[in-house]
């Protein structure tokens, strides 16, 4: 059996990462959101290009702001001298400033892969395997069918995490640590379902 970190080493490291992520990137740790960006590459790039063109074209932006102001207040626009300077209200922790671009999400996901790769080489655990696990091969009655299991399981994970707006990191780690009732409910449900499925698999697993 492979040696892994003890429960308290893993817990301290993972818990610290959740806080560090929030502190450094000003947004909660969550991977399903990054997947959403990755799966909408074309739309994300187009949207970022449009936003860039919009911001760089001062006249276009002024017109849009003027029209939005008229739509909101009509002709009775309050004196702009009373309004605070937007530049003086910079809050680096606000959701507006915390949003990451498509590229940053992609880099984050790619470096999860790189981190695991470095760990595997550093601990001499890297090996190219066609089999994920003997347990899975036994469960699915063959190597080829185990790949079909993985595909179906993957679809359920992708669909489910988007539908539930989070996964083990977004709901389980970040959400529960912040005491979000929605995340506590979601984490309880996905753990119960995962445990039920795994216990069922253990019962039908050939001895």
């Amino acid at each position: 059996m492979t040696e892994y970190w003890t429960w308290w080493q893993g817990g301290l490291a993972l818990g610290s990462l959740v806080v560090l992520f929030r502190l450094v990137l000003h947004r909660p740790l969550g991977v399903s959101g990054s997947w959403l960006k990755l799966a909408s590459t074309r739309e994300e790039i187009k949207s970022e290009q449009q936003a860039q063109a919009f911001v760089s074209d001062r006249a276009l932006m002024d017109n849009a702001l003027y029209e939005a102001t008229l739509a909101e207040f009509g002709d009775a626009v309050p004196g702009t001298t009373d309004l605070p300077d937007p530049g003086s209200q910079k809050d680096t922790n606000s959701p507006r400033n915390s949003s990451a671009s498509f590229g940053q999400h992609a880099v984050f996901l790619f470096f999860i892969f790189i981190g695991a790769l470095l760990f595997a080489f550093a601990t001499d655990r890297f090996s190219l395997d066609l089999e994920l696990s003997q347990t899975l091969t036994q469960l699915s009655h063959g190597l080829a069918s185990s790949w079909v299991y993985l595909l179906l399981g993957g679809v359920m994970v992708g669909f489910g995490t988007q539908m539930a707006s989070g996964c083990t990191s977004g709901h389980g780690l970040s959400g529960c640590a912040q005491g979000s009732p929605t995340s506590v409910v979601a984490t309880f449900i996905f753990f119960i379902c995962a445990v039920t499925t795994a216990v069922f698999f253990s019962m039908v697993l050939p001895q």
Binding site: Y149, L150, L152, G153, G154, V155, M156, V157, F159, G160, T161, M163, A164, C167, T168, I189, F190, F191, I192, C193, A194, V195, T197, A198, F201
Partner: peptide, 9 residues
């Protein structure tokens, strides 16, 4: 869906 899929894959 996610919990079940997680245990499968």
């Amino acid at each position: 869906l996610f919990g079940t899929g997680w245990a499968i894959c």
